[in-house]
């Protein structure tokens, strides 16, 4: 299978700031690929490098094997759903969606038929005559999606498309986007800073940190076997154990990660180590308990049914040794 997008040692530097630094990346055709990272980590710049709004200062980008170094955005078979949707406020929904075919020279009847088809795809049939200003955030998002899909792009880029929606709507859209991607078979590249979103939607995800990719893999790979303390921390808010503590617990003297839900709290002296409960946070489905083991703070997840200890209590901590994941990075 060919790769939809390939980065070979791609950098985008702004003077001394290395927004993207020597990134190697390949995105498989037909996959749902997420770029995850905190703001300023280079994920959005990578997306803009694919769409052509940014030019790499070094390296080579290929889209379906073709070098796009000299191809402007309007000639790439790549379309974008913008973070702010960027709908044209002076056009109605139908003209917005038909914009791509319009600039390609498609006649009015044909492009309007196409626009209606796309609007039906995103469940907005009958909204063609409205102006973007008359739509809700979720509807605008669908229009942006329809507009980006109308040109039948080979790669669809989504720049934090769900960021502005409220929780319920966001969850519904996540399912819908996933279903749409499966149905259309187009490669989706999705930028987000929301770990849960990336984990639940992506086939593959890349975790960005300071202009570099910290880890690429399937969601379960990244979640269960984080490559670096940063990934462990950022994805799934794992506990990161310093080498000294890992060694004390029977592992090698290296950084290790331990997921909160893998930990069970037992009576003092009955576990692998002892600590003091520093704080409790009620999460609905359970409680997140912070336990101080020496200088290190370890978070444990206590399910709702079980009794959570009180702050200040001395507790023991235990877990399956296999849950302790030793990382390569520092």
């Amino acid at each position: 299978m060919t790769n939809a997008v390939t980065f070979h040692k791609v950098s985008r530097h702004y003077g001394k700031v290395k927004a993207v630094d020597a990134v190697d990346l390949s995105i498989a055709e037909g996959s749902f690929f997420a770029m995850l990272g905190p703001s300023g980590s280079g994920k959005t710049t990578c997306l803009r490098l694919i769409s052509g709004f940014e030019k790499p200062t070094a390296g080579e980008i290929r889209i379906f094997g073709q070098d796009v170094s000299d191809t402007p955005p309007n000639r790439r078979s790549v379309n974008t759903v913008f973070q702010d949707y960027a709908l044209f406020p002076h056009m109605n929904v139908r003209d917005n969606v038909a914009y791509g075919p319009m600039v390609a020279g498609v006649g009015k009847t044909e492009r309007y038929a196409k626009a209606e088809e796309m609007l039906a795809l995103v469940k907005l049939d009958g909204y063609g005559d409205r102006k973007p200003g008359q739509l809700s955030g979720g509807q605008r998002q669908r229009v942006a999606l329809a507009r980006a899909l109308v040109n039948e792009p080979r790669v669809l880029l989504l720049d934090e498309p769900l960021g502005a929606l409220d929780l319920k709507l966001r969850e519904a859209m996540q399912d819908e986007l996933k279903a749409l991607q499966k149905r259309l078979g187009i490669t989706f590249v999705f930028v987000t800073h929301d770990q849960h979103e990336a984990l639940s939607m992506a086939d593959q995800l890349a975790v960005f940190n300071e202009g570099k990719i910290a880890q690429i893999g399937s969601p379960s790979e990244v979640y269960d076997r984080p490559a670096t303390p940063f990934v462990a921390n950022f994805v799934g808010s794992s506990n990161v154990l310093p080498p000294s503590l890992t060694a004390q617990l029977g592992g090698a003297a290296a950084w290790a990660s331990l997921r909160p839900e893998a930990i069970r709290l037992v009576a003092k002296g009955k576990g692998k180590m002892n600590g003091t409960v520093a704080a409790l946070r009620y999460l609905g489905a359970g409680s997140r308990v912070s336990v101080m083991v020496g200088e290190t703070e370890i978070a444990a997840l206590v399910p709702a049914g079980e009794a959570a200890p009180e702050a200040g209590a001395e507790v023991g901590i235990t877990f399956e040794t296999s849950a302790l994941h030793v990382m390569a990075g520092s």
């Binding site: 769409s51 309007n74 702010d84 791509g100 600039v103 040109n151």
Partner: peptide, 27 residues
């Protein structure tokens, strides 16, 4: 006029001239 609007136009295949006529000038 937000920059993203001009980028959206270009992203959808418009040349500079088409972006000027269909997006910049009307706005």
């Amino acid at each position: 006029v937000p920059v993203s609007m001009l980028e959206a136009s270009s992203d959808l295949g418009a040349t500079r001239g088409q972006t000027f006529r269909s997006v910049i000038l009307p706005l």
